Simulated assay, not measured.
Amino acid sequence: MEKHKIITSFKRDLAGKVGKIMLISFSLITLCIIALAIILLVQSPGKVNPLRDKNGNVMKGSISEKINVKINGVNMGMIIKSENISNPVLLFVHGGPGMPEYFLTEIYPTGLEKYFTVVWWDQRGAGLSYSSDISAKTMTTKQFVSDTISVTNYLRERFGQDKLYLMGHSWGSYIALQAAAKSPELYHAYIGVGQISNQMESEKIAYEYMIKYYNAKGDKKTVKKLEATPIETMDGLSDAYEKIRDDVMHRAGIGTTHKMESVVSGIFLPVMQNSEYILKEKINIWRGKAFSNSTGLKNEFYSTDLSKTITKLDIPVYFFSGIYDYTVNYSMSEAYLKKLSAPVKGFYLFKESAHSPIFEEPKKVVHIMREDVIK
C-alpha cells in the first residue's frame, strides 16, 4: 500500500513537472513567434525607396512608386522606378506562374532604371495583385495576354508614349511573347529572358542533366530521389517531382541564379526581409504563388509549344540566356529564335548566368539594351 502511494505521488510530481516544462516551452514558442512578428513588422514599412544621387538627395525628375490600378476588372499592383520620368518605358513581365521578382532588385540591382522607366508589374493573382476574390476561371493564358496588353495601354497613356519596350522572364516570356505577337504596334521591341519555347521538353533536358550531374558528384541520395520521379514520358510535371525540382536545380547551379544554392536563402528570406513591402504584401506573394499554381495555368503552359504557335513577330526580338540555364534550356531558346521570323533578331549568351542574366550580369544587360535594343 505504501509502495503504491509512493508511485502515485511520483507520477503526480512527474506529471506536474512535465506540465510546467510544456507550459514554459509553449510560452517560449509564443514569445518567439511574437518576437518574429515584431521583427517582420519593423522590416516591413512598405515604402518604396526613392532614387538618390551621389549626395543622397532624391533625384529631380525621378519616379519611385508602388501603385494599384484596376486592369480588366482586377486591382493590379506595380512598382515603377526611373531616374528620369521621360525615359522610355520598359514593362517587365515576371516569371512563375505567380512569382513577382521586384524583391530581387534589392540584392541584385539591375541598373535599368537609369535608362528606362521600369515597370515591375505583378500579374493577376500574384503578389501586389493577389486577391481571394479573383476567380480561378480567369487564370488562363488568354486572360494573361489580354492583361499584358491592357497594362501596356495604361502605361502608354500614363507616360504619353506610343510604344513600350516589353521584357518577359521565364513564365513571363511565355505570356509577353504572345502579347507582342498579338499587338506588335504597341512595342518598340521584345526582350525574352530565359525565353520559353517548349517547356516540357526543356524540363526533360534538365532532368537528364541533373541525373548526370549528381551521378558525377557521387550524390546517390539525390540521384535516387530523381529516379523515383521520372519525367521522360510525362506531358506535365508530377507533384512528387515538383516537390524536389527547385531544390535539386538550385543545388546543381541551374536555377534562378548560378550561385543561388537554396530557394530558402535565395528567395524566401529576401522576400520576407525586403523593406518595400508591408507584411501583408509579403504574405500575399506566397498566397499568390500557391493560388496561381493551383489553377490550370501550368497545364496550358506545359502543353504549349511556342515554336509552333508563334513563328513570326513584326518587331525586333532579343533573347537573353544564361549558359548555366536549364530551368529554361538556353539551347532551345536559341533554336527557337533561329526559326522565328522578325525584322531584327539578337541572341545573347551570358557566360556567368543561369536563369536570370538581368540580375546576374546586369552591366552586360544594360550595355546591350543601350547599344542594341534602344533605337
Rank of each mutant, 00 (worst) to 15 (best):
Y330M: 01
F359G: 00
Y241S: 03
E281S: 04
D372C: 07
Y102I: 02
I191Y: 10
K66L: 06
K217F: 05
Y241K: 07
Y165Q: 08
F319H: 08
I107H: 10
K339P: 04
G19I: 03
L23K: 13
N198K: 07
A180Y: 01
L186P: 00
Q199F: 11
Y324R: 06
I33Q: 05
D314W: 00
I310W: 09
K66H: 01
V344D: 13
K351M: 12
M200F: 03
Q123G: 04
Y209H: 14
Q199P: 11
N293K: 04
K182R: 08
L177I: 15
D162Q: 14
I85C: 02
K114T: 11
P109L: 02
Y241Q: 05
T311Y: 05
E185C: 03
E227R: 13
G46D: 07
T140V: 03
E208N: 13
Q123P: 00
N274M: 04
D53C: 08
G322A: 06
S341V: 14
D162Y: 02
I285H: 08
K70W: 00
Y190H: 08
L14Y: 11
E201T: 11
T229N: 15
S170T: 05
I231F: 03
A180T: 11
L237Q: 08
I134W: 04
Y207K: 06
D235N: 15
L297C: 02
A176M: 04
V373F: 07
P97M: 09
L28S: 12
S62F: 05
E276W: 02
Y154L: 11
N87W: 08
K220M: 09
V145P: 04
R12H: 06
E360Q: 08
K375F: 01
I134V: 14
L36K: 00
A290D: 14
T229S: 12
T152W: 12
M78Y: 06
Y324M: 10
P88Y: 07
H188E: 15
K298C: 04
I211Y: 01
L177T: 14
E334Y: 12
Y115P: 00
